[in-house]
């Protein structure tokens, strides 16, 4: 299963980079989101995956009795998901705003700093 997941992560990264290399701003954001997902999965995979053993201490004991999956990558990824949402929402609104001002969605037309359109 790990091999399949590793290829999935590769696919996410590849498609993310490909989308970033497009000229459309919307595609750029989609690319960033895809890479973000890929990165989350990568951390998750490298923390080793296990089925049916969430890192939650069972009801009446104080410590783990059985095996549990690694809580640390999960904490990291949780943070990453939330932060990337902040980034994405800001980027989406920025694109909307930029389009309103410069009337284009084409990155190649946005490479000068001090002239509109």
């Amino acid at each position: 299963m790990e091999v399949l997941l590793a290829f999935m992560i590769g696919t996410l990264y590849a498609s993310g980079i490909y989308m970033i290399l497009r000229r459309s701003l919307v595609k750029l954001i989609i690319g960033i989101i895809l890479i973000g997902n890929g990165a989350n999965l990568l951390i998750f995979l490298l923390g080793r995956i296990a089925k049916g053993s969430p890192p939650i201490i069972p009801g009446d004991s104080k410590v783990f009795i059985e095996a549990y999956s690694d809580p640390l990558p999960q904490a990291l990824i949780l943070t990453a998901i939330v932060i990337s949402f902040g980034l994405q929402s800001f980027a989406i609104i920025l694109v909307k705003r930029a389009h309103k001002v410069v009337k284009t969605d084409d990155l190649d037309e946005m490479n000068a700093t001090d002239e509109f359109s």
Binding site: A6, I17, Y18, L46
Partner: peptide
């Protein structure tokens, strides 16, 4: 060109993650 570059990069990530595992 972009596709080849992206696939190369994705492949690299895959191999690195397998190696790390």
């Amino acid at each position: 060109i972009d596709g080849v570059l992206s696939i190369g990069f994705g492949l690299l990530i895959t191999l690195i993650s397998l190696e790390v595992l």
